[in-house]
Amino acid sequence: MSSASTSTSTSVGRVRRRTSRTVSTILSKVGVYAALIVTSLITVFPFFVCLMTSFAPQAQVNAWPPKLIPTSWTLDNYFQLFHRLPIGRQFLNSVIFATGVMVFSLIFDSLAAYALSRLDFKGRNVLLVVLITGMMVPYQALLIPVYKMLASAGLIGNMNMLAMILPRMADVAGIFLLRQFFVSLPRDLDNAARLDGAGEFRVFWSIVLPNAKQGIFTLALFNFMNNWNDLLWPLIMTSKSNDRTLIAGLSLLNGSQGGAIPYGIMMAGAVISAIPLVIIFAFVQRQFVEGIAMTGMKG
């Protein structure tokens, strides 16, 4: 607006500017929604396909053109799946493996995190540096030597579940995740408890742990989810169908017959393997996301 304009034209201009601003806000809102809807469709679509295909008759799954909604609903894929794989057993294996790793690593990680954040002891800083070094070693690079160790200890083939759980009973990333949460708690809390005569374990158990619920919870979920979903580790540590976890067992269906891939049956397995996680996350997703956000921010 030039200074020479009259008062009326200024107000007209203002009105025009305001309308154009509302129009552009509306447009940008529409754009934001369009982008978010497209993104969500892309993330959810494969799981929707999984679910629908698992209930579709095999003839439809193997026909062109593909149909999203089953022409007739059937549990045939599920029956076939149970016929081909020991699904109940593999489901149990997954539960024991994921829960076992979760429980043991919570115990060992939180104890270590407590010592490394609250206690002053000789060699503490050296231990921290050594652990940070260990955090940067990817487990995929250690598959061969770890397998060799477990095999020579006689665990593989006899006690596969122990072989899968044992190496994961503690992990550095978990220790540091918990340590971040512990460090942020005020130290006066535990010093007061100590002056009242509480021992270190008491301070750990009744003061620090209850106040770091978010951290414990985040690590527990991470460990359960990662191990439930892991493919490479159980694939290597087990060879018999009965020893496999669900995820490693399902991958046996994939191309195992050389010919057509039994998609319908695979999808039925996929749905079964996803059910526990979907149920868990339906309840706790918000807390989990907040936990990740807290750990991510500190980096």
């Binding site: 494969p46 396909v49 999984c50 994939n254 999808m267 996929a270 996803a274």
Partner: peptide
Amino acid sequence: VLSMAVASMAWKFI
């Protein structure tokens, strides 16, 4: 949240 192996089966089909 869900397994990469399972999602990959779905993508292979798609």
